[in-house]
Design a protein around this nucleic acid. Structure first.
Lengths: 232, 232
DNA sequence: CAAAAATAATGACAAATATCAATATATAGA
DNA sequence: TCTATATATTGATATTTGTCATTATTTTTG
């Protein structure tokens, strides 16, 4: 993990890409830009850990990051994948200043860190920014509901189907796609053992619904996959 | 369901009880009070249904309400119990103006409805109010994480233990407590069939951990119940 | 490059949980 | 009060899912 400040072209450029910055004026962006620390993480490195103090707003500017809750017996629940340019502001910032989930780079990644107080003060002074943030939190909440239903009411094939659809439509946005997520990660996204995840993938493969070679996935029959997602 | 306006003593009085109103000035409370519609619901009545337009801020001033996501095959997931004086503002208000969960009175209840735009405009004009709201949403999010871990990583005894602890500590805040939740509701809170929920309750009873008579519950061994929650 | 380590895959089996059917009990209406 | 209806309980059984052990494959490292 190495710290290099000012390597990229700064927040003004990011502002053109990251939705959250769109409603900020030049002066506001400059404040963020000045306080910003840019950090590089190698694949597999922990970015922050559940339970530790949460004092920063985080913006992922390159690579990909998994967010996961550490549960019992070393079991994890992956609650989301973050990619450029999206930001992370944990709920602890407004509650107890702790991280309530962990973040790990699943590719070589770059994150910009900014003191959370800068973010909080923007929330107070810029209503558009506050509204955008609440909108983002609301969308996350709706996604969490969907995941909760998937995890609690669907059987394993439905849950794996949901993971594949999520990766295809929300993360990689491509159909033959390559992932750096391990089989254990896919299991942690769908709340099952890695052996079960592997078995369901093999079933899908045998039925001609998907093609799998290592970490290269291709969904051959998207209709069928959506049907499996529906029927649980 | 009957509509009676101005029956209670108004928002200024409520303001002494509902945290969210504490940071509002008299003038702001009066705006809410004027636009407020008070509605009574009988136990079992639907207050709003998932999928319908969501246009109101809702404040529960008496009774008790369950919030639940309607999943597949008529299976529900209860995501929270709301009691006086707490408010409900679904995530749809900032996303698609739809309800993403349903609400049903589990006791005779009273709700005050206010146009969501009044709420949204307060968010924009009063930074303390906005911060309080974000804080509430953040706490809900943390609770959802806990529930997600309980539902996905604990076996049935651990999940039922979590439900009993939740009811005792967060909802009724009493130890022998009476609930209007059915066995099906307890199952919907813990993501299992009602038969399974009943069996686990019977096991706890046989082991002397709880006393159950109809809907009257008493936790006889709280330490043991917490231990079961921990060990999954 | 070879050895070691990590990850993936498979099979046999055990444990957890749901379903179905039957009965009991409580509750609401006539 | 009595009947009808909903809710709760129980047992038997089938299904789903996890665990453990083993082998294969890939990746890393010296």
């Amino acid at each position: 993990m190495s710290i290099r400040t000012g390597v990229n072209s700064g927040c003004k450029f990011c502002g053109e890409k990251a939705d959250i910055f769109e409603c900020l004026c030049q002066a506001e962006l400059e404040v963020i830009d000045e306080k910003r620390i840019e950090v590089n993480f190698k694949a597999g490195e922990l970015i922050f850990k559940q339970g530790t103090p949460n004092l920063h707003f985080l913006c992922i500017t390159s690579g990909m990051v998994k967010l996961y809750i550490e549960g019992f017996d070393g079991k994890n629940l992956i609650i989301g994948i973050v990619k450029p340019i999206e930001y992370i502001l944990g709920p602890g910032i407004y509650v107890d200043n702790k991280h309530h989930y962990s973040a790990m780079a699943i590719e070589d990644s770059t994150a910009c860190l900014v003191d959370a107080n800068v973010f909080k003060s923007l929330i107070r002074t810029n209503p558009d920014f506050a509204e955008d943030f609440i909108r983002k939190v609301s969308m996350l909440s709706i996604l969490n509901f969907d995941q909760a239903i998937s995890l609690t009411q669907k059987q394993m094939p439905g849950r794996i189907a949901d993971v594949l659809i999520y990766l295809r439509e929300k993360v990689y946005m491509a159909n033959p796609f390559h992932t750096t997520l391990s089989r254990q990660d896919l299991a942690d996204m769908s709340g099952m053992s890695k052996e079960s995840a592997i078995r369901i993938l093999k079933d899908f493969k045998d039925e001609g619904i998907i093609k799998v070679e290592g970490n290269n996935f291709e969904i051959l029959n998207e209709d069928q996959l959506h049907k499996i997602s529906q029927t649980g």
